[in-house]
Design a binder for these strands. Sequence first.
DNA 1: TGACTATATGATTATGTGCTCATATAGTCG
DNA 2: CGACTATATGAGCACATAATCATATAGTCA
Lengths: 109, 109
Amino acid sequence: MPKTSLNPQNLESVATRFRILGVPLRLQILNELASGERTVTALVEATGSTQPNVSKHLTTLLAHRLVKREKRGNSAYYSVADPAVFDLCEIVCGNIERSLEEERRAFGG
Amino acid sequence: MPKTSLNPQNLESVATRFRILGVPLRLQILNELASGERTVTALVEATGSTQPNVSKHLTTLLAHRLVKREKRGNSAYYSVADPAVFDLCEIVCGNIERSLEEERRAFGG
DNA sequence: TGACTATATGATTATGTGCTCATATAGTCG
DNA sequence: CGACTATATGAGCACATAATCATATAGTCA
């Protein structure tokens, strides 16, 4: 039944999810949010990007339900919607590790 | 220590991995390869795409070590390099499920 | 060798999107 | 209200890349 995971309807949705995560700045934002909720300004400082850019990526992440938004006072507080995204990053990192390992073996590192 | 997973050096690598998986046809190919090795022709038939297109995506997947290639006779047999990619898809599907669930709750489905 | 099948690749086009700039919206405080 | 801070958004540019077509490469078999 994992076979149903990638049926045609899901295919586009899954691909989209992956594409959302395929932008370094967005990963950086999520990584920052891993420590807790953050305001846009805080994320701008943490990432070194511009305010409009961070804001737009947050809008994208919000639209795809990867983050939550809560407005308090003058600020917007963003937080991770589903911590499972970090599992994804863990797997990918492990994957990359194994790739590099294989590379080392291949070239007799 | 999961914090180190997304250090600046890794950030680009991780993002790239995600981007590779962010193309429906590539997911379709990987999904097909989940059942075992396949030739390019078999993948062309299975996906309904064109030969050059499938071939190029396979080249991309190969370059990023997501698949392996073995040439036997006249054909090239591709297979999944690291089955962990399917864990990724599982997580993403679960993620999407929860999103939809939340949506249903929000709209009183 | 020539005919055939299988796969890869170069050139081109089309499209999506990340980034920047300027500006708009919204909330707080005096 | 006006001044300020925080956030969002529209327009435009720049770039990456997925898809297509034509063609090249490579292997098999007669």
